[in-house]
Amino acid sequence: MLATLQPEIEVMYDLDHNEYSRLTSRERSVQMITNYLTEHKLDDVRNSIKQAISLLAWAEQDNVRWRQGYLESFVHLAGVLNPQIEELPDFKRLSVATRRNLGIAAKTLQLRVMEAEEKLATFDFDDVWPDLGKAAGTPVYQSYQAFRQFLINYLTGIYGNWPPNQGQAWFNRKIALDMQRDFGMLYDYLVNRDVAWDAREERPGNKWQMINLKTEDFRANLPELPLSDMLVAWDTKHGYTHIPHAYPLLPRDVPQTRVTQKKSLFGGLKKNKTDTTKDAKTHLQLSIVFSDATNIEKMDSSFSTNALIDRFEHFELGADLKTMTPREARLGRWVLLHGILQVLSTLSLDVQSLKHTDGVRYFLCTDLKRCPEWVTNGQAELLEASQLRS
């Protein structure tokens, strides 16, 4: 209907020529229709695949070229496209170039979702460790593994199973946004913002190093844990932009007390009162050192209602520290948190300039590189969902 209506309106404007108007008859006719569509929310294609296809077919015409309509329809269709939609008669009325570009964008997006599902289903980020065989026995790796199990248990409590819909595609935009909110808040809770990346080209093979902006007495790489080298190598391997502040606040070490046990009258082992007092004292010390190594005083009121942070606090205090220090425990959790945030950052942000996104469960972060230049203005990367905005 729009394809036939627009030329009629254009003729009307030709007959009603206004020499003072800076718009041509074609431009005025397109503007009239787009204003009507927008005013009556007919440009909202969230609930209708057919409407999205029709709007895209009209917006892409050479005598229309409605940028916002094209962008909105293209991104929403890329998020839901499947072979059944591609067989619809309306879909085949799209230009060959648009059908091709939609197909590639949808497949690229589906591949990213599948890769995210593989990582987030079990939180398996073992490939961060350069030598897994050597790392497996270290306290930091053991902490990383314990945190994996904690997260699986936590999310199982929320969704009933983790991953949800086992055996099927399960990762959608709503889950991604919820996870980005919670893990992003956990990052804010733990991050040391005084530590940043220092990039220098004159360090061949070692361009990226972490520095502390407030002290020179800082080393991110330790003999037993070359953390910055690990994160740089992993980010580079997967094409991620480095997280600007990629180091956590670390608790100070607490002297470990060895609990002695003696036999009771009936042959069992029991703790004496002194040992029980030491246990309570150690627990209080750990509570203080872990809480001190957070940004709790800098966070807003939304922190107090975040269930993940609340459960994380209890997890840290209840963790077995017989074989590791509080610092090693925190570093192991940080390695996993870093990997999770990097995966989420590729899917939790939408293409910029979209008007209708609320309630959408499919992803709106498709690749725009093949869209016409009149849509992207030659700057597709500025419109696309970017890690820098995560």
Score class of each variant (00 low, 15 high):
152 I>Y: 04
175 I>Q: 03
168 Q>C: 09
142 Q>A: 07
163 P>C: 02
174 K>H: 15
150 F>G: 05
158 I>V: 15
153 N>C: 14
149 Q>R: 13
165 N>R: 13
152 I>E: 05
148 R>V: 13
146 A>M: 10
153 N>I: 08
155 L>C: 03
163 P>F: 02
140 V>W: 01
176 A>G: 07
167 G>D: 11
163 P>Y: 01
150 F>Q: 02
159 Y>N: 02
156 T>A: 04
152 I>A: 10
141 Y>T: 00
172 N>R: 09
148 R>F: 08
135 A>G: 08
175 I>D: 03
160 G>I: 03
149 Q>L: 15
174 K>D: 13
161 N>T: 15
157 G>A: 10
164 P>Y: 00
169 A>N: 14
147 F>G: 08
176 A>F: 09
141 Y>H: 13
170 W>S: 00
175 I>T: 10
160 G>K: 06
168 Q>T: 08
169 A>E: 12
144 Y>H: 13
146 A>Q: 12
161 N>I: 13
152 I>F: 07
167 G>V: 05
149 Q>E: 13
174 K>Q: 15
151 L>W: 05
145 Q>F: 08
140 V>L: 06
144 Y>Q: 05
158 I>N: 07
163 P>M: 02
175 I>Y: 07
168 Q>I: 00
177 L>C: 06
138 T>E: 03
142 Q>H: 12
159 Y>I: 00
170 W>L: 06
136 A>H: 13
152 I>W: 08
150 F>E: 08
155 L>A: 08
142 Q>K: 14
138 T>L: 09
137 G>I: 03
145 Q>I: 10
168 Q>V: 00
147 F>C: 12
158 I>W: 08
152 I>M: 11
171 F>C: 05
168 Q>F: 08
157 G>H: 07
172 N>A: 06
148 R>G: 12
137 G>Y: 04
141 Y>E: 06
141 Y>N: 04
162 W>M: 00
173 R>T: 03
171 F>P: 04
135 A>M: 12
171 F>K: 01
161 N>E: 14
143 S>P: 07
177 L>F: 05
172 N>D: 15
174 K>S: 15
137 G>V: 00
137 G>L: 02
174 K>G: 14
169 A>C: 11
149 Q>G: 11
135 A>L: 09
148 R>P: 06
137 G>E: 05
138 T>Y: 02
173 R>N: 14
155 L>D: 03
161 N>W: 11
138 T>P: 03
139 P>R: 01
138 T>K: 02
146 A>C: 09
163 P>H: 04
160 G>E: 06
176 A>I: 06
137 G>D: 03
171 F>I: 08
173 R>S: 11
167 G>H: 05
166 Q>I: 10
155 L>Q: 13
140 V>R: 06
135 A>T: 09
138 T>F: 02
167 G>K: 10
165 N>P: 04
163 P>G: 04
160 G>Q: 09
136 A>S: 15
157 G>F: 09
152 I>H: 06
167 G>I: 14
137 G>T: 01
175 I>H: 04
154 Y>N: 07
165 N>F: 07
158 I>F: 12
155 L>N: 07
154 Y>C: 05
165 N>V: 02
177 L>M: 11
177 L>S: 12
